[in-house]
Design a protein around this nucleic acid. Structure first.
Length: 120
DNA sequence: CATCTGACACTAT
DNA sequence: TATAGTGCCAGAT
């Protein structure tokens, strides 16, 4: 195997993919998106991606706690779009307890999928 | 290669 | 609750 043949996708690409995975009616945060993409502590870069990549459900990405971070009319637009999808607000923030999307864990491919807990 | 930038997160006040 | 300062890090210049 090459030294690093298995490099991960560039941050911008990985983040865009993560953002696209947020379902309609649900939301996430800059920090959570960055972490899910494999780049924790790079929340600020997520904002850049949202401003660069077109066609993303940008309105579903919020600041910590469900706060709309986009200022001005765009912020109002964001709130309007989210409410149109059925996202509920509590004051100025989105009710994250109800609408935050949980990304699947990045678990490293497991050859043996016998890992289920006997439930209960 | 050095700096600057930003739709952030977190803490202290 | 609101404001201000610090830490962060990849992209842009």
């Amino acid at each position: 195997m090459g030294p690093k043949s298995a490099s991960k996708l560039p941050p911008a690409i990985a983040m865009a993919a993560v953002i696209r995975s947020i379902p309609r009616g649900q939301v996430s945060t800059y920090g959570a998106v960055a972490e899910a993409a494999g780049y924790p502590r790079s929340a600020r870069h997520v904002a850049k991606v949202l401003n660069t990549v077109r066609g993303l459900p940008w309105q579903r990405v919020l600041g910590a706690g469900g706060r709309i971070s986009l200022p001005g009319e765009y912020g109002l637009e964001q709130r309007f779009l989210l409410e149109s999808e059925g996202v509920r607000f509590r004051g100025r923030k989105v009710d994250m307890a109800l609408s935050e999307f949980r990304f699947a864990k990045p678990k490293k491919a497991r050859k043996n999928s016998a890992r289920r807990a006997p439930s209960r």
